[in-house]
């Protein structure tokens, strides 16, 4: 296997990173909304939120992607397959991130919140200054694992015709008859990206912990 082929894989991995990053970002926004709805204590919003989480955690991502890919045109939304893929990935990661965030907020010690209340902080200030920072610190390791999970899961968007690392590897493997080195290289590139993300996660955890017990 030549360096040219390896370089093509590296270039395609850039797309994998872009699709994953965009999905994780939108997934986080959606997860924050879902988590808020779930913890709001109002059944009218909490129940749909829980149903969303249960569905997207309870079905294979491959099937979610295909369902969204075929469903969107049917309801009159003709979007490129890249958009459908990012929507699928975002919904999936949103459901996982919502569970992580919920766990984080529920693990904030009650005493700390009560103390903030005693000090006369408003509910808004308590959320912004006390509950949110503690929850973020508690959930960083799980959010990092979820980011790695999505980077790996993004290989599935190759089935709806989106070009990324796995698609490129599949095409190159069948055109050069060298599946062994090409898929091994693709795996190696995923591994390197994930190690970098894991490292960034550790760095973020360390900086979030700075100045705290």
């Amino acid at each position: 296997m030549s360096w040219e082929l390896f370089w093509l894989l590296v270039e395609a991995s850039g797309l994998t990173i872009v699709y994953s990053a965009v999905s994780i970002f939108f997934g986080f926004l959606l997860a924050a909304a879902i988590c808020g709805a779930d913890l709001s204590g109002r059944a009218a919003v909490a129940r749909p939120a829980r149903l969303f989480v249960s569905f997207f955690r309870g079905t294979p991502l491959l099937i979610q992607l295909l369902l969204i890919y075929y469903l969107l045109p049917k309801i009159g939304l003709n979007v490129p397959s890249e958009v459908a893929a990012v929507i699928g990935l975002s919904f999936s990661t949103a459901s996982y991130q919502a569970e992580i965030l919920r766990g984080g907020f529920q693990s904030v010690p009650r005493g700390v919140v009560e103390a903030a209340d005693m000090c006369g902080l408003s509910a808004r200030a308590t959320f912004r200054r006390i509950r949110l920072p503690i929850a973020v610190r508690l959930t960083l390791p799980a959010l990092t694992s979820e980011a790695i999970m999505i980077l790996k899961s993004s290989s599935l968007i190759s089935v709806v015709g989106v070009v990324e690392l796995t698609t490129m590897a599949k095409d190159l493997a069948s055109s050069t008859y060298q599946p062994l080195p090409i898929f091994a290289s693709a795996g190696f590139i995923y591994l390197v990206i994930n190690l970098v993300v894991a490292g960034l996660g550790l760095w973020a955890e360390r900086s979030a912990r700075r100045g705290h017990a």
């Binding site: 790695i148 790996k152 599935l156 796995t166 599949k170 062994l180 898929f183 091994a184 795996g187 994930n194």
Partner: peptide, 15 residues
């Protein structure tokens, strides 16, 4: 744990 299951499956089946 650091590589996608799909890539592992391709590697086994095609490689």
């Amino acid at each position: 744990r650091g590589t996608p299951f799909l890539v592992q499956a391709y590697l086994l089946y095609f490689g």
